[in-house]
């Protein structure tokens, strides 16, 4: 594997840490805004903490999965680019396809001897511009959509109690069914995860243990991965 020398340039490290810093600042500002607004939304301090903890615990499995994919790509893109492109903003799938496409347009294969600093610059640029397009369209559409959202809420508040559920069930069932068709192992992971989640939800209500709900994604994802390991 040929790794271009410039992949670990200090400037790239600074830019990578800069993106981390921006997300950290955003998180702090958002958390403080949430804390301030919580009482007006009938949310107690302990509920705020529970929400934070539930989010953090649920993210452990998926974060470790991202870490594992990121590690395998270190020799191709270098640490700073992997941190920003694979770890944050983008996803391993999108970014790898983008990188290959970019390298091919220069007539080079990633990791081959022709993969030099100039090709790497092209690859990194293409990944970054593609990722930027998501942010630009978020910046354009979110203000428009939230204006529409506010107007609808005023006209008929009941509408907004239906929209998130409909959107999520349709989205997750589309993505989930796409996954289960890939192989028996995918199916085993999906079904085990769903089954364990159902059991945990029932148990949480029967035993009146809210912490079970907090840990439900973490536990069922672990069980689903265990099933995948057995089915492999």
């Amino acid at each position: 594997m040929n790794t271009p020398s410039v992949t670990n340039s200090p400037v790239l490290w600074i830019a990578a840490l800069g993106v981390f810093a921006v997300i950290a600042v955003q998180s702090i500002v958002y958390f403080r805004a949430a804390k301030r607004a919580a009482p007006a939304a009938d949310m107690t301090d302990s509920e705020l903490k529970t929400a934070f903890r539930a989010g953090a615990v649920s993210a452990i499995g998926p974060s470790l999965a991202v870490v594992l994919v990121a590690i395998t790509l270190l020799t191709v893109f270098g640490t700073p680019v992997v941190l920003v492109r694979i770890g944050l903003i983008g996803s391993a799938g999108f970014e790898t396809v983008t990188a290959q496409t970019a390298a091919q347009s220069a007539g080079v294969e990633l990791g081959s001897t022709g993969y030099d600093n100039a090709t790497f610059a092209l690859v990194f640029f293409t990944m970054s511009v593609a990722g930027a397009a998501w942010m630009v369209s978020t910046l354009i559409f979110v203000p428009l959509l939230s204006r529409a959202d506010r107007r609808i809420r005023k006209l008929n508040p009941a509408v907004m109690t239906i929209v998130p559920g409909a959107a999520m069930i349709a989205g997750f069932s589309y993505l989930g069914l796409t996954e289960v068709r890939k192989s028996g192992v995918h199916l085993a992971a999906f079904l085990t995860g769903a089954l364990v989640m159902m059991l945990l939800q029932v148990a949480a209500v029967r035993l009146r243990r809210t912490w079970l709900k907090e840990w439900s994604v973490g536990i069922s994802v672990a069980a689903a991965l265990g099933a995948a390991a057995i089915a492999l």
Binding site: G61, P62, L64, A65, L68, V69, T161, I162, P164, G165, A166, M168, I169, F172, S173, L175, G176, E179, V180, K182, V185, H186, L187, A189, F190, L191, T192, G193, A194, L195, V196, M197, M198, Q201, S216, V217, S220, V221, A224, L225, A228, A229, L232
Partner: peptide, 22 residues
């Protein structure tokens, strides 16, 4: 094994989305 994280997450989450719908 971690390559199967996507179906492993989507199964449980679909159940949650079902329960959250009103």
């Amino acid at each position: 094994v971690f390559g199967y994280i996507v179906p492993a997450v989507l199964g449980p989450v679909l159940v949650q989305a079902f329960m959250a719908a009103r």
